[in-house]
Design a protein around this nucleic acid. Structure first.
Lengths: 185, 185
DNA sequence: GTCTATAGATAGATAGAC
DNA sequence: GTCTATCTATCTATAGAC
């Protein structure tokens, strides 16, 4: 074990995520990250060749989680909407800080390649929930369900109330979708 | 009639809104606005003392509309949720470009004083829909309904499909809220 | 009302010493 | 791996001529 490798690197990731989530990616300069860590900008550039690289690396775990979720759901097939949305709630809650950061400035994200992938999530989720070639009524229901579950997961503050809001959000989402929620957990 | 007064001024407003909506406020520089209008930055500053002033003036009509809507609903009292949400859909759709701009970089907005006011809308809408002191289940339902109606209104592209999506979104929102939608229009 | 010119600040990024 | 020093680009905003 080569002592505690990557210490600075992971401290950078941690601080960057914190600042990105609280004030947006664009409004967080590398200078600010460096100052908070009491290192210099140049030191930061040693670990990450660009701001974009730093952000990309922060986003990767979220992407992995969501895509694992979708792959799994598509492989299983015929998953109950409530279970699928519940898993989506959990992923969103787990990456809450990152979601906030992405939400703060969508504009920045568009310049990255991530937005196309996020749209693909939506499409895949929609296909899983209301099938291909949905009518407007189904698209609207799906928009409420997915967006609403995500909003609730992001909004919830402590993990204390999380469980209660989770069930509440899922109930509302199932009603919006018009699916029976009784019996499923 | 002093000829066509304020021509340049309103052209600036128009172009700025267009650019803000398509790429975000922060990523739109005054230089870019000026170039597209074929005037100089300095000329722009003659009409608007700062970028913030320009943005504030663009936002004002939206604020007026929403607050009129809320004032009216509170005065009337006991308005059917579907009617209230329908009006909110209409306001959102009318100011679609501006909503997009605000959505693109929330971070910028936080620095303005607008976010507190937007939170107040949410509170007032929530109070109108599920009353004061709502439980988590009601908060979640309201989050889905309001957020979802807004999302649908922003997402809709042409005014052709708008009517169909409007009804679809309102139906889904009412289901999420658990209110009977039959009979109301 | 619109221009040129420029101030003043800050951003992301790089070179090279240690 | 971290530093100092510096580059280049871009931004908002202002002063003052026309």
């Amino acid at each position: 074990m080569p002592r505690r490798e990557n210490d600075t690197r992971s401290r950078i990731r941690e601080t960057a995520l914190e600042l990105f989530a609280s004030q947006g990616v664009d409004k967080t300069s590398l200078r600010e990250i460096a100052e908070r860590l009491d290192i210099t900008k140049a030191a930061l550039y040693y670990h990450f060749p660009s701001k974009k690289d730093l952000l990309t690396e922060l986003i990767q775990p979220l992407f992995d989680d969501v895509e694992t979720l979708l792959d799994d759901a598509e492989r299983t097939g015929d998953l109950a909407p409530r279970v699928l949305l519940g898993r989506y709630f959990d992923v969103t809650a787990r990456h809450r800080a990152l979601f906030l950061a992405l939400l703060y400035d969508l504009g920045t994200l568009i310049e990255l390649d991530v937005v196309t992938r996020i749209f693909q999530w939506r499409d895949r989720l929609q296909r899983l929930l209301v099938g291909p070639a949905p009518r407007p009524a189904e698209i609207a229901a799906c928009t409420l369900a997915v967006g609403g579950v995500q909003d609730c997961a992001i909004t919830v503050e402590g993990p204390s109330a999380a469980e209660e809001y989770r069930e509440a959000a899922l109930d509302a989402a199932c009603r919006a979708l018009g699916v029976d929620t009784a019996g499923t957990q």
